[in-house]
C-alpha cells in the first residue's frame, strides 16, 4: 500500500548543477522505519524526486528532510561554485 505520492520538480540553472544535486542527494538511503520509497530522476537541468508512502506523517518528514539537504547543497554550490569541471572524475 503506497497511497500517498508527492512529486517535486526542481529546475537548476545548468545541467551540471542538477547533476551535482542528483549525485549528492541520491546516495543516502531513507531510514527503514520510515517505509518511504524515494525515486530520483535526472533529466538535463531538471531534478525530480518522487516520494511514496502510506503514512502521511512519514512522507512529510521525508520531504522536510529532503528540502533541508537540498537547500544546503544549493547554497554550497552558490557560494563555492560554479563547478570547476563538467563531470566528476573519481570512482
Amino acid at each position: 500500500m503506497e497511497d500517498i505520492k508527492i512529486k517535486i520538480i526542481i529546475p537548476f540553472p545548468t545541467n551540471r548543477a542538477a547533476q551535482i544535486a542528483y549525485d549528492v542527494l541520491r546516495i543516502d538511503p531513507e531510514p527503514k522505519r520510515n517505509h518511504i520509497k524515494k525515486e530520483y530522476v535526472l533529466d538535463d537541468n531538471i531534478l525530480s524526486v518522487e516520494f511514496c508512502g502510506d503514512i502521511a506523517k512519514n512522507v512529510r518528514t521525508a520531504l522536510t528532510n529532503f528540502y533541508e539537504s537540498l537547500i544546503l547543497c544549493v547554497e554550497t554550490q552558490d557560494q563555492f561554485g560554479p563547478p570547476l569541471s563538467e563531470e566528476y572524475n573519481y570512482y
Binding site: I20, V24, I27, F80, G81, P82, P83, L84, Y88
Partner: peptide
C-alpha cells in the same frame, strides 16, 4: 559531497 563535486 557537494564541495567534492564542485571542486572535482
Amino acid at each position: 559531497r557537494t564541495i567534492a563535486q564542485v571542486w572535482n
